[in-house]
């Protein structure tokens, strides 16, 4: 069932998605810094789990982007 949102509701959804994307990006940035810090300190067990989690964050962002495209297409 396709839902059609009025414009002001769509903007609210877009703003919400952008906020979530921003949070995910900040988490990824922190993760990258922590991984680099541990790598430089000699810890070899951190990079692989960090990469897996970073890829999960990337997939989440991709999913949110796909949702945005779908949202835009329902208007047309």
């Amino acid at each position: 069932m396709k839902q059609r949102f009025p414009r002001h509701q769509k903007m609210t959804i877009v703003h919400g998605i952008l906020s979530i994307v921003l949070i995910i990006d900040i988490v990824q940035l922190w993760l990258l810094i922590a991984t680099m810090n541990s790598y430089l300190g000699g810890d070899s067990g951190v990079p692989l789990p960090a990469l897996i989690f970073s890829c999960i964050c990337l997939l989440l962002n991709l999913g949110l982007l796909r949702f945005l495209y779908k949202l835009d297409r329902t208007a047309n």
């Binding site: 994307v21 995910i24 990824q28 940035l29 990079p47 960090a50 990469l51 990337l58």
Partner: peptide, 19 residues
């Protein structure tokens, strides 16, 4: 999206250097 991809690429690079 691009920023997220860049961070993931950075994580992959660290994993490669670790290997």
């Amino acid at each position: 999206m691009l920023i997220s991809s860049a961070f993931s690429a950075g994580q992959f690079w660290i994993l490669f250097k670790n290997w």
